[in-house]
């Protein structure tokens, strides 16, 4: 029975979800999964629940942080996706293959998401083992709207501060130890 499978672990998981969900309350563009182990593949779901000051969103730019490789955006009907490639600061190990260049920015454009509608933008990436468990990995995002209106979710909290201390924090994922 479904009910029988519930145990203490499931309560803890729900509590953890509650805790992480609570920290994300203040952010505008947020990540759906805010916990991820390093040296694993991560599905980043960017949740966009608003435009810029009432205007529709027509472009979403996501900056790929250093240490995140093998980035693949999920195609989105009505939107064109562009991958801006470039060299990494160093070579990262991708299942034994040294990788020194790749996607540094993903741009979704061509669509129009009204201010009063919600949508998600998805990419999959590999979080390399060079990333430090316990730290938070931030994906700075620029959200563009018509007439030059723009929202920049690009603030990365300084040490000792949280995203709540900022007006326009970048969405982040808390890194967990390698599984």
């Amino acid at each position: 029975m479904f009910v029988r499978t519930l145990n203490l672990k499931s309560i803890l998981t729900a509590t953890a979800f509650l805790a992480t969900g609570a920290t994300a309350v203040s952010a505008h563009v947020t990540l759906e999964n805010q916990l991820a182990p390093v040296a694993s593949t991560y599905k980043a779901v960017f949740r966009v629940g608003h435009g810029c000051e009432g205007k529709p969103t027509i472009k979403i730019r996501v900056q790929i942080p250093e240490g995140v490789i093998a980035v693949k955006p999920q195609p989105k009907p009505g939107w064109t996706v562009a991958k801006v490639k470039g060299p990494y600061d160093k070579a990262y190990d991708y299942y034994g293959t040294p990788t020194s260049e790749g996607v540094k920015e993903i741009v979704w454009s061509g669509g129009s998401l009204p201010d009063d509608e919600y949508d998600e933008f998805v990419l999959r990436a590999y979080l390399t083992g060079d990333l430090v468990a316990g730290s938070t990995l931030y994906f700075p995002i620029v959200q563009e709207c018509p007439d030059g209106a723009v929202e920049r979710w690009i603030e990365i909290p300084a040490a000792g501060k949280s995203a709540d201390d900022y007006e326009q924090p970048a969405p982040g994922v808390k890194l967990q130890p390698k599984e």
Partner: peptide, 22 residues
């Protein structure tokens, strides 16, 4: 247990839903 989990999940969903608001 079922009640606790359901309540926690509901609260989490509500809070997470808050993410969608600006």
């Amino acid at each position: 247990k079922r009640t606790i989990v359901a309540a926690l999940v509901l609260v989490a969903v509500l809070l997470a839903a808050g993410d969608a608001f600006a």
